[in-house]
């Protein structure tokens, strides 16, 4: 409840600044205008399609990145040889900012969906692999050794101890990296796209429609929050044993 107070203050100051003429209304539209524009965008100008495309890009590329990063990260965190094989490659890529690949991705894949998916994929996967690898290698040795003295074989222990022990942390890593994925999505759509939330914002800039830009920012913020809530819900649903309440 206390947190809402700051938001009310924020919008109050914003509204006051515009209505009193402290700022140029052309550059800073009032929050009321932004909400009205948002409604108009959704109701009359098919903005839902742009939002849908953006969400699809996020989910598609993120799931693909997870499908590779989760098994690879777990294997790298579990087996020294797998780590020795892949880690020099993976950690080098982390130092290459994904947007640096935009020009070449455009040349390779043209202007369709592929370059956007590739950018998001590249921006997320190497960090995700590293995070999951680190979490996996931090699974406590006593847990693994306990399973060994109970007669567990290597692969049994991987499946029945390492994976369940690391899963909650994997979900947290995914939640963190999904936020990063949104950043790359907007970059991709602003630089080279005619569809999606970012593209709409770039079109609006050409016509000085600051209210539409603000509406776009608002939508991205709300979507980010929604995905975050989804992950929190998943955390509770998948790992009930972590919850504070007794039974």
């Amino acid at each position: 409840m206390l947190g809402a107070l700051v938001w009310i203050l924020f919008f109050g100051v914003w509204e006051t600044a515009v209505s009193r003429g402290w700022v140029n209304a052309l550059l800073v539209p009032s929050p009321v205008d932004v909400i009205a524009t948002l409604y108009e965008l959704f109701a009359e100008r098919g903005f839902l399609g742009d939002v849908g495309i953006s969400i699809a890009r996020i989910i598609g590329s993120f799931l693909l990145a997870c499908a590779i990063a989760i098994p690879l990260g777990i294997l790298m965190g579990s087996f020294k040889t797998v780590e020795a094989l892949f880690n020099p490659f993976v950690s080098a890529w982390r130092y290459l900012p994904a947007p640096a690949f935009i020009p070449i991705l455009l040349m390779w894949f043209g202007t369709g969906e592929l370059p956007k998916l590739a950018l998001l994929f590249l921006g997320v996967i190497f960090f995700l692999i590293t995070l999951i690898m680190d979490h996996t290698s931090q699974v406590r040795a006593e847990l693994i050794e306990t399973a060994m003295t109970l007669g567990g074989k290597r692969w049994q222990i991987l499946w029945t101890v390492v994976v369940p022990a690391v899963l909650p942390n994997i979900l947290i890593s995914m939640r963190q990296m999904l936020a990063i994925a949104w950043t790359y999505l907007v970059i991709a759509e602003i630089v080279a796209s005619t569809t999606g939330i970012g593209a709409m914002m770039m079109r609006a800039r050409r016509f000085l429609n600051t209210d539409e830009i603000m509406a776009g920012i608002l939508v991205i913020g709300v979507l980010g929050l929604a995905f975050d809530l989804l992950f929190r819900w998943l955390q509770r649903a998948l790992f009930p044993y972590l919850s504070q309440e007794g039974d």
Partner: peptide
């Protein structure tokens, strides 16, 4: 040669019953 450690080694994701059944499940 089953071992009990000083550090707690309960598997958090399993109930007490499932923890105790764990070794037998492996075998």
């Amino acid at each position: 040669r089953g071992m009990v450690f000083q550090a707690y080694t309960s598997f958090d994701w399993l109930t007490v019953q499932q923890n105790v059944e764990y070794g037998m499940r492996l075998n």
